[in-house]
Simulated assay, not measured.
Amino acid sequence: MGDSRAYAVFRTTDAATAYARAERLCGLLEERDDEVGLFAELRTVAEVRAMAEVLPGARYDYVNRRTGPDGEDVWFDLHADATDDATLEPHLPLDLFEDAPTGSVEDRFVRVLGRGTAAVDWHGLWPDDPESDRSPSAKYDGVQVVFHGEDAQGGRWAEYHTVFVHVSKFGDLSRARKLAAYIGGEVLGEPQLGW
């Protein structure tokens, strides 16, 4: 068990640049999972509508915990893409968590992001590298770009966007440095808890 270690390797205020650098890192993965993980915090009806066009039938939930009259948890159970604006508005903001086939929607997903935090996660396997501290691991390896944030596991909103590389649960600073250099970046701070 355990979680990967995520190293921030690039940060910018331009979402397209962050996404391009993350895609470039994905090109180094020896293997890549068939699905990509997508997350977005949607703050407006317009953002929900745009995302529903990219990911029809996606799952949404409340950003903040909501409870019913007896203190029970309440989950968002409307079909956001089939609900009128006036009905949808009081439920905002919403989170979207969705897996999609790799290469199918990432570009469009990034183009319709609003001002909320968001992420694209590509799991895979780094190639063997005798200069790295650890062997690659399909359980832990991958690339992540976090929009409007600096934390691999979500967190507070930021103006900039951060690209992470994920490696062994024991960390692999030498691999992270090499991957960062490949995209013109550098390791930014200490490793974070990853996926």
Rank of each mutant, 00 (worst) to 15 (best):
T17L: 15
A18M: 11
A18I: 09
A20E: 13
A20W: 08
R21A: 03
A22F: 07
A22C: 12
E23G: 13
E23C: 13
E23N: 10
L25G: 02
L25H: 04
L25Q: 04
C26I: 11
C26P: 05
R32E: 06
R32N: 01
R32A: 08
R32L: 08
D34E: 14
D34F: 10
D34A: 14
D34Y: 10
D34K: 11
E35H: 10
E35F: 11
G37E: 08
L38S: 00
A40K: 09
A40F: 07
A40P: 06
E41M: 09
E41C: 11
E41H: 07
R43Q: 14
R43F: 11
R43G: 09
R43T: 12
T44K: 04
V45P: 07
V45Y: 05
A46R: 12
E47I: 04
E47V: 03
E47K: 03
A50E: 05
M51A: 11
M51T: 13
E53C: 10
V54D: 01
L55E: 00
P56I: 05
P56C: 12
P56L: 09
G57R: 02
G57K: 01
A58Y: 01
R59L: 13
R59E: 12
Y60K: 00
V63D: 00
N64Q: 12
R65L: 08
R66C: 00
R66L: 02
T67L: 13
G68I: 02
P69D: 09
P69N: 05
G71W: 10
G71P: 10
E72D: 15
D73S: 14
D73T: 15
W75Q: 12
F76H: 08
F76A: 08
D77V: 12
D77W: 10
H79T: 15
H79S: 14
D81E: 13
D81G: 13
D81T: 05
T83H: 05
T83P: 05
D84R: 11
D84P: 09
D84Y: 12
D85T: 15
D85H: 10
A86G: 02
T87G: 04
L88W: 06
L88C: 08
L88P: 05
E89S: 03
P90Q: 02
P90V: 01
H91I: 00
L92Y: 03
P93I: 05
P93A: 07
P93H: 06
P93V: 05
P93T: 06
L94C: 01
L96D: 03
E98Q: 10
D99Y: 11
D99K: 12
D99P: 00
P101K: 03
P101F: 02
T102V: 03
G103V: 08
S104G: 07
S104Q: 11
E106N: 08
E106H: 06
D107E: 15
D107M: 12
R108Q: 14
F109I: 06
F109W: 10
F109D: 04
V112L: 02
G114W: 15
